[in-house]
Design a protein around this nucleic acid. Sequence first.
DNA 1: TAGTGGTCTAGACCACTCA
DNA 2: GAGTGGTCTAGACCACTAT
Lengths: 230, 230
Amino acid sequence: MAAVSHHSIRQSLLERIQRGEWPLGALIPGEVQLAEEYGCARATVNRALQALAHDGLVIRKRRGGTRVSPLPVRQARLEIPILREQVEATGSRYTHQLTARRRTVPPARVRDTLQLPAAVKALYLETMHLADDRPFAFETRWINADAVPELPDRALEQYSVNEWLVRNVPFSSGNVSFSAVSASATVARALETSPNAALFLVERTTWREAQFITTTKLFYRPGYALTSRL
Amino acid sequence: MAAVSHHSIRQSLLERIQRGEWPLGALIPGEVQLAEEYGCARATVNRALQALAHDGLVIRKRRGGTRVSPLPVRQARLEIPILREQVEATGSRYTHQLTARRRTVPPARVRDTLQLPAAVKALYLETMHLADDRPFAFETRWINADAVPELPDRALEQYSVNEWLVRNVPFSSGNVSFSAVSASATVARALETSPNAALFLVERTTWREAQFITTTKLFYRPGYALTSRL
DNA sequence: TAGTGGTCTAGACCACTCA
DNA sequence: GAGTGGTCTAGACCACTAT
């Protein structure tokens, strides 16, 4: 390992920015000058600066040079683990139960989200996720049956629906939304909590090449928090 | 722009993975072979593969080669914008009001978080963030006065406390936590909502080189959701 | 120990944008 | 038009680890 690597340069530049060597919005030296200063090739400095730019700490423009980000946007990288791992990470035993499974015509809201033609049936599933046999999260899910291979009964014994989908319909794109909701009577019963309890809700919709696959709501038990480094 | 860039290779490999050319967990060709296939230098393929690895889509090991990630961890990159920008992005007018400001000894929980000695005073601030003069979010904040330059009164006319801190004590590290809480009487009154309403809560603590700076709670008005691409 | 990824270099050319 | 970052290349050596 050389004394100067793009990692060490990145770290060094970060510290210089944090120490205030260059104020917010200020221009920092060009790649050529920094390369000279650190005694390495320009490409190495370039790599370090690109990493800083990727993290939103500097802003780079051709001809305009590199500036310390005037209003650094804090970014949090959230990992959305499979529930099994989330539970097992706390040392608890993970189990799950399929509590509903039917093929019906989805409500309009879901039909729009999945872009299904009217009157087409979709697969509806409800799953309870348990940690040490106590409710951890309650999941409702609609699946576009046309987009997914038949869901074998056997699979559901081993994997939760989500896990099965991840393993069998991988790498779709999608979006997530985090919010807070009051527990409806149904959800409160499932989570063994009181109606109107404040629940952390994660909604996800995923698709693959313009074909919508699934949309889910995940209601976490009260007190759950999603944490991340900033 | 050459026909092959690390971007295009990255995209191509992504599509090949998504099409299932290599199953989950499978080994994909080595850099040398891919470079030959795409007709470019190994470094270019390397860069594309590193990007995919960074996003958790492949797993790379020296000597072990590159594999499609067997259980892709979905990652969401959340940008935590300054409230002003969050509000203005919706086309509303942003204003804020400082509703409380005092120096007192913080409660034990805050003292622990900021790692303050007992009986040392800290700065406590409450801010209402408004969108078109209607409550958008309610913020409570403790600041370690030793870690921060004196907060000039003048600054608070122009910037919210948070914005002032970002501009004057930049690039600290920190963590965030997202959860759901029931509105307390105080918070409900501030947000002009009913007690026990489910609120989305963002808690943040930031520090800089082992010195704690501030810890805040941000209660969003009911119905707020944080959204991100997956 | 051999084979893979990780990294650095020196040089080159291009793309953008500011003056 | 000139100066900055963006990128590619060909070659080299190193670091890790599976066998």
